[in-house]
C-alpha cells in the first residue's frame, strides 16, 4: 500500500527519501541507496549495482558472516547452572533442558512455538502447572520475577518498548532499576554510586548517549537494547535470558550485541537465547533447542545445526 503510493509519487517526479534498516524494503523500493554510519556519510550507490552483502559491509565495515566467524568462543562451558524438568503451563508442555555455565543455548522455532512462554515460565511471569526449576543443583521456587532475580536470573524481553524500557525515565534510572535495592541504605538511594555504575556501563558497552540523564526513548534501538543489557549485567546474574535481542536493531549494532553476548558467555554466564533469525541463532549458539507448539522437538549441537534441519524440526510434518 505504502509502496504503491511511493511509486505513484515517483511517477509524478517527486523525490522520496526512505529511511529503513529492512534490506528487503530497500531493494524493493529504492533507486539509489545512501549508507550512514555513526552519524557520518559512508557511501551512495545505485541499488541495481549493489547487493545485501555489500550494503552490510558498508554499514558495519565488514561482512556479517565474518562477524560470526570472528566471535571467539573459549571452551569455557562448565558445570550445570540451570536445569528445568517437565515445565508445563497454559502454553507449553513438558519442557526439559539443562544449561551449563558459559553455554549459549539457542531456542529456535516459529512464532508461537512456546519459546517466549518457556522463558516466562522460568522467570516467574507465567504460572507453572507442573515442573521443576533447579539452579546450581538446588531446587528453587520461583513465583514472581522478583524471586527469579534473587535466584540469579535476568530477562531481556522480546518487546523492548512495551516490556523492557521505562520510556519517560533516564538511561541511568533504566540501568539501576534492578539493583536499586543494593544501591540503597535505609531506603535512601545512593545517587553517587548509581551514577558511577551507569558511567561504567556506558563506557563498557559503548552506549551512545548525550548524557546519563537522557531519556532512554531518545536513544536508537541498538543503544536502548544495550541499556537493557546493562541493567542485567550490573545485577551480576548466573543466567541471562535474551528474547530476540536484535529485533528492530540496525546491522551495526547487531554485530556489537553479538560480540557482547559472546563475551558474556566467555565470562561464564549461562545464556538462553531466543531468535527467529536462523543465521543468528546458528552463529551464536553452542547448542540449539527447537520448539513447536509448546513442546521441544529437537536438540542440535553447533556442529549438527543447519537451517534446513532447524526448519524441519520447527515445522509440522
Amino acid at each position: 500500500m505504502l509502496f504503491k503510493v511511493i511509486k505513484k509519487l515517483k511517477e509524478e517526479n517527486k523525490i522520496i527519501l526512505y529511511v529503513s534498516h529492512r534490506m528487503r524494503e530497500i531493494f524493493e523500493i529504492s533507486d539509489t541507496v545512501a549508507v550512514l554510519k555513526d552519524g557520518e556519510f559512508v557511501t551512495k550507490v545505485k541499488t541495481e549495482q549493489t547487493d545485501e552483502q555489500q550494503l552490510i559491509r558498508h554499514m558495519i565495515g565488514r561482512d556479517l558472516g565474518d562477524v560470526f566467524n570472528k566471535l571467539t568462543r573459549e571452551d569455557s562451558i562448565g558445570e550445570e547452572v540451570l536445569a528445568v524438568k517437565g515445565l508445563t503451563t497454559d502454553s507449553i508442555s513438558d519442557v526439559s533442558f539443562r544449561l551449563r555455565r558459559g553455554e549459549i543455548l539457542g531456542f529456535a522455532g516459529l512464532v508461537g512455538a512456546g519459546r517466549t512462554e518457556t522463558m516466562k515460565a522460568i522467570f516467574g511471569v507465567d504460572r507453572l502447572h507442573s515442573g521443576e526449576i533447579w539452579i546450581e543443583g538446588r531446587k528453587v521456587k520461583i513465583e514472581s520475577p522478583a524471586d527469579a532475580i534473587s535466584e540469579g536470573l535476568g530477562f531481556c524481553p522480546e518487546d523492548r518498548i512495551s516490556e523492557g524500557i521505562f520510556r519517560s525515565r533516564s538511561i541511568k534510572e533504566n540501568m539501576s532499576v534492578v539493583i536499586l535495592k543494593l544501591l540503597s541504605r535505609n531506603g535512601f538511594v545512593d545517587f553517587k554510586r548509581e551514577i558511577d555504575i551507569a558511567k561504567d556501563q556506558v563506557a563498557n558497552l559503548q552506549i551512545k548517549t548525550p548524557s546519563l540523564e537522557t531519556k532512554i526513548i531518545e536513544l536508537s534501538g541498538g543503544n536502548q537494547q544495550k541499556v537493557l543489557l546493562a541493567r542485567w549485567l550490573v545485577s551480576n546474574p548466573k543466567v541471562l535470558i535474551l528474547d530476540e535481542p536484535t529485533r528492530g536493531i540496525d546491522v551495526g549494532a547487531k554485530s556489537e550485541i553479538y560480540k557482547l553476548i559472546t563475551e558474556l558467555a566467555n565470562k561464564g554466564l549461562g545464556i538462553l537465547l531466543i531468535s527467529s533469525e536462523l543465521p543468528e541463532i546458528i552463529g551464536l549458539s553452542d547448542n540449539i533447542i527447537v520448539m513447536r507448539e509448546g513442546k521441544i522437538t529437537g536438540f542440535l549441537t553447533k556442529q549438527e545445526a543447519t537451517e534446513e534441519k532447524i526448519l524441519t524440526l520447527a515445522m509440522k510434518k
Binding site: A146, I149, P157, S162, E163, F166, E173, V177
Partner: peptide, 13 residues
C-alpha cells in the same frame, strides 16, 4: 518506575 511502565517494572523485580 511503575508509572513509567508497569510491565517492565514487574519484570525488573
Amino acid at each position: 518506575m511503575i508509572g513509567g511502565n508497569e510491565t517492565a517494572a514487574r519484570l525488573a523485580g
